[in-house]
């Protein structure tokens, strides 16, 4: 049968227009029913063209999706990085503030003491008492700085993955009493009651110095955020693990902040309001995890917080 002339051209152009729009009006039935073999071949060619174009279009869509995913991932990584830089800057600002404040006190008290020693200056009867008082405060600034430097070193070790535990026989009851003895002055200064519930020995194999650090950080935290209310510390052994609980009745932690408090550089209460670098709970949780244990918090705003540490026996 002869080529259908302009009528055929119109049909082809119509099909092409549809294909160009991403659709196809040619079906197998139309091809089979086509009486003109040349036209039939053209229709088959158009079908193949449509399929090729559809395939290319799918490929392009997939490529675009992949590009979008990559772009989103890149944006997420950039955002993570921005947040990390912001956290680091905040940490440095807090660290600078925390280091410079006791340094200023040290500097002022030392100058003041030197001035009091100036030859020719007549010492009044209260001078010795004032000097003793100043020296006591000097000592406290040194302790504050020492604790800060220790905290920074912990952070440095943990972030470099160098938290080397040296396990040995430990009685957690002794650790708790030693830590509380060290806080004696601070507890008196803050006029806080600390109740200890440690009915019997709780012996196990842990790294004593690091567990001491965990208890120190939890007690320090309870003193800072305990609002002067009583603090309870308990130690007990259960079937498979030892449990240390430190409970305060202070400011507490809002629900939405509780998941973050064991992260680095994330203090639930604004950092500028409390002494320290705000890394104590992160350091504690890293040590507990490295010891095969776990740490959790139960807290309500204005009612206080209970930190529970479980260590394998």
């Amino acid at each position: 049968m002869p080529w259908g002339g302009s009528k055929s051209t119109d049909r082809i152009l119509m099909h092409l227009a549809e294909i160009g729009a991403g659709r196809c009006t040619i079906t197998d039935d139309i091809v089979v029913a086509e009486p003109d073999p040349e036209m039939s071949q053209v229709l088959v060619g158009l079908l193949v063209l449509h399929e090729d174009l559809s395939y290319a279009s799918r490929q392009r869509t997939e490529a675009e999706t992949a590009l979008r995913v990559v772009a989103e991932e890149r944006e997420r990584l950039l955002e993570d990085r921005r947040q990390a830089v912001e956290a680091r800057d905040q940490f440095l600002a807090v660290a600078a503030h925390e280091l410079r404040t006791p340094l200023t006190t040290l500097s002022l008290l030392a100058d003041h003491l030197i001035a009091m020693q100036t030859p020719g200056r007549v010492a009044d009867s209260g001078a010795a008492e004032i000097q003793k008082h100043h020296l006591g405060r000097l000592k406290r600034q040194v302790e504050r700085l020492t604790a800060l430097v220790a905290e920074m070193l912990d952070v440095s070790r943990i972030t470099r993955g160098h938290l080397d535990l040296v396990p040995g026989p430990v009685d957690l009851r002794d650790v708790v009493h030693e830590v509380l003895d060290r806080f004696d002055l601070e507890i008196t200064r803050r006029d806080v009651t600390v109740k200890v519930d440690a009915p019997g020995p709780v012996r196990g194999i842990w790294d004593a110095a690091h567990i001491d650090q965990v208890v120190t950080n939890l007690v320090s935290n309870a003193l800072k955020y305990g609002a002067g209310q009583p603090i309870e510390v308990s130690v007990r052994a259960e079937t498979s693990h030892a449990v240390i609980v430190v409970r305060d009745h202070g400011v507490g932690i809002p629900d939405n902040e509780q998941s973050k408090i064991f992260g680095p550089f994330t203090r639930a209460v604004a950092a500028k309001h409390h002494e320290g670098l705000g890394l104590g709970l992160w350091v504690a949780s890293q040590i507990v995890q490295a010891s095969g244990g776990r740490i959790k918090v139960d807290s309500r705003p204005k009612e206080g917080s209970t930190f529970t540490v479980e260590l394998p026996l």
């Binding site: 404040t101 006791p102 200023t104 006190t105 002022l108 008290l109 100058d111 003041h112 001035a115 004032i130 100043h134 405060r137 406290r140 600034q141 504050r144």
Partner: peptide, 16 residues
């Protein structure tokens, strides 16, 4: 708000 620094500042200035 820092007790130690506040007291040190106070002592130094009171002494003057």
């Amino acid at each position: 708000d820092d007790d130690d620094l506040r007291e040190a500042l106070m002592d130094v200035m009171s002494a003057q």
